[in-house]
């Protein structure tokens, strides 16, 4: 038993160490979210709760944007959940480490899943070993802790940033989404899906100017549908 808990801890620490590059990236992202949430009318506890419960930066931001646009809670949840559908693939890839574990360990394991979890599994492979449960737990949990802390720091920083309009704060949320694009671009195969997504939104905005949240969902789904229909080379 003593021996087991020793490997548990060393696995968790190794996971946290291998996660470090992603943790650093998440800290600036989390701070950006904290600032934007506070400037969008969230309280400190709401900003922290969202980071703790949702734990997915882009989904948190898109929900925030939908609320700001006055689309309502339903549209905000729908847009965020649509963005998080990719987590199906993440936790599916975690299954080998989770299967056969006690239910509470499975719950905790999937709760901590993010895009970075996939990179962590790859980091273990690069070491020539399988990513164990506690290795992944340590890495993913360290990311959650930093994510919440960074959100808090961003929320505190927001008190020092004055009057929105004048300092381009209204533009901050647009800038964050534009800045996400290079990381999402996977190469030429994304070209037509992205053109279809953008084109659908432009068409919808002209035809139904008041239905922005539907334009968003329909544009995204048509883009993804295009990606599905295009044949592999």
């Amino acid at each position: 038993m003593h021996r087991t808990s020793n490997t548990t801890i060393s696995d968790a620490l190794l996971g946290a160490r291998d996660m470090l590059p992603m943790t650093l990236a998440a800290s600036t992202y989390g701070a950006a979210f904290g600032i934007l949430a506070m400037k969008s009318g969230f309280s400190v506890s709401q900003s922290l709760s969202m980071s703790a419960l949702v734990f997915a930066g882009s989904a948190q931001l898109i929900a925030l944007d939908q609320l700001l646009a006055g689309a309502g809670a339903g549209a905000a949840i729908l847009a965020g959940a649509a963005l998080n559908m990719r987590m199906l693939l993440v936790t599916a890839s975690m299954r080998p480490a989770l299967a056969g574990r006690p239910w509470w360990q499975i719950m905790a394991g999937v709760y901590l899943a993010t895009d970075a979890s996939v990179a962590l599994i790859q980091a273990a492979r690069d070491r020539g070993s399988a990513a164990s449960y506690w290795y992944q737990f340590g890495g993913n949990a360290s990311l959650l802790v930093v994510w919440i802390l960074a959100t808090g720091i961003g929320a505190l920083l927001s008190f020092g940033i004055p009057t929105p309009e004048r300092f381009g704060l209204d533009y901050a949320i647009i800038a964050v989404f534009v800045a996400l694009l290079p990381g999402l671009w996977r190469g030429k195969s994304d070209l037509w899906p992205w053109i279809v997504a953008a084109g659908s939104v432009i068409g919808m905005t002209f035809l139904f100017p008041s239905q922005a949240s539907w334009a968003l969902i329909i544009g995204a789904v048509l883009g993804a549908f295009t990606a599905g229909m295009i044949r592999d080379e």
């Binding site: 279809v196 883009g223 993804a224 295009t226």
Partner: peptide, 24 residues
Amino acid sequence: GRWARGMEALPGCLIMALVTLMMV
């Protein structure tokens, strides 16, 4: 296959759609 390709493309398409919506 198709379903997997669509799922993998969804996040990029959603953010692209949002940026378009903001930029128009």
